[in-house]
Amino acid sequence: MALDPPTMLTISIALAAAAALYLAIEWRTVRESSLLYWSAGFATITVGCTLALLRGNGHLLIGIWFANGLLVTAHWFFLLGVARFTETRLSRAWYLIFVVWLAMLLLPEGPQWSKLMFLANSLLVALPTLRASFLLRPHGMSLSVGAVQLRFVLLAHGLFYLIKMVPPLVPGSLIDLAAFRGEIIQVSLVEGAMAIMLIALSMTGTERYRREQQIARLAARDPLTALYNRRALEVRAPRLINAVSAARPGALLLIDIDNFKLVNDLYGHTAGDRLLVALSEMIRALLPPSALAARLGGDEFVILLGHASPERVHQLGSSLRDQFQQLAAQSYATPAAVTLSIGANLFDRPPASLAALIEQGDQALYESKRAGRNRIRLDDRTLAAPAAD
């Protein structure tokens, strides 16, 4: 099959339509707006390439001006999708692209008309494409393979359109948009089909990676408090507890809400959930850098510290107890005070497992509750010192 202009346009139509359909299906599944914009971009290319075929029948206004305008619009949709993906706010100045294209209607038809249209189209496609590539730069954060690929595909595509602006400026160069004549037009059609395929693959890979990352984050978080769940804590804790030493002890604080059932019974489970969320926010606000916090289940929470000391543990525990008791007393009147009991242990050697460490904290928590609740029980296992309340 000869790669003549109608054939290349037909290939582009098929590729763009397939990409638009696939991205639309993905959008219906995950509702990411970037997918919707990218799908709209490929759908616009599909329509534009279809209209471009009409120029062979003499419909020059539709087949050239309108079709090329849709190509510009498609790349503008790509830019919008990348902006949504990177959570970037675009300037309203980008809407001037369409004003410039509408102004192309005022160009007088003549020997240079095809070259001027070719120049304008190349510039208006290159600008949003290069801007989209710029938005995908790392910003100090790692990007997925798909996002990196999309960035460089868009960069190459945008640079190609800038390079396309050179031939029309060369005296004697042949550019005839009506008949698809001119070597640069032939090259553009081939590059367009390849770009559609590469951009589509990169976009789907980019969004798929982000969706997988979101799923992984959700799987690691408690759905109510957004703290780590126990499974995530078990994955992250070994690096912290294996780094402890005599010079840098670690500490575990096991936290339980006293009389929490009274809040649920008197005010409902929604009130209880609000109290759990409030406690998680207090923990997050007081959590030192590199420390870990998780909700083990129910009204039980755990904090894992590195480079700890008895004073640091007591300070953190006391701050939590005071803040929580004040909030609970102001929000929910109960026959018995709703407070925090905390069992903590300080260690300078890695425990056999996280479960063994939590079991030690549970013993300290039991002693805290048995001693009257609303207190901290610290077992210092580094110096074999007597436990202190």
Rank of each mutant, 00 (worst) to 15 (best):
I97N: 04
H139W: 11
S133A: 14
R84L: 08
E109I: 08
Q112Y: 14
F77E: 00
M141A: 06
A120M: 15
R84C: 10
M141V: 06
V125A: 06
F118P: 00
R131L: 02
T86S: 08
T73Y: 11
A132R: 04
R137N: 09
F85W: 06
Q112V: 14
E109R: 11
S114E: 09
A132G: 11
A132W: 04
M141K: 02
S91Q: 13
L127N: 00
R89S: 11
P138G: 04
A74D: 01
R89W: 10
L70T: 02
R137T: 14
L116A: 14
T88D: 13
S91I: 15
L124W: 14
T88F: 15
L107A: 10
S122Q: 10
F134P: 00
L124Y: 14
F85P: 09
E109P: 06
L119R: 07
V100R: 01
S142V: 11
A120N: 11
W101Y: 13
L124E: 09
L106Q: 09
T88H: 15
P128C: 01
A126P: 05
A103R: 03
W94G: 07
H75R: 00
W76F: 14
G140W: 13
L124K: 02
A67P: 05
L119I: 11
L136V: 05
L80A: 13
P138Q: 05
Y95C: 05
W113Q: 13
E87D: 07
S91E: 15
L71F: 03
F78A: 12
F77S: 00
P128M: 00
R89H: 12
L107T: 11
V100M: 02
L80N: 07
W94Q: 09
L102G: 11
A67G: 03
Y95A: 10
L107M: 10
L102T: 06
K115Q: 09
P108W: 12
L143M: 05
L127E: 01
N121H: 13
N68T: 03
S91R: 13
H139E: 07
V72W: 04
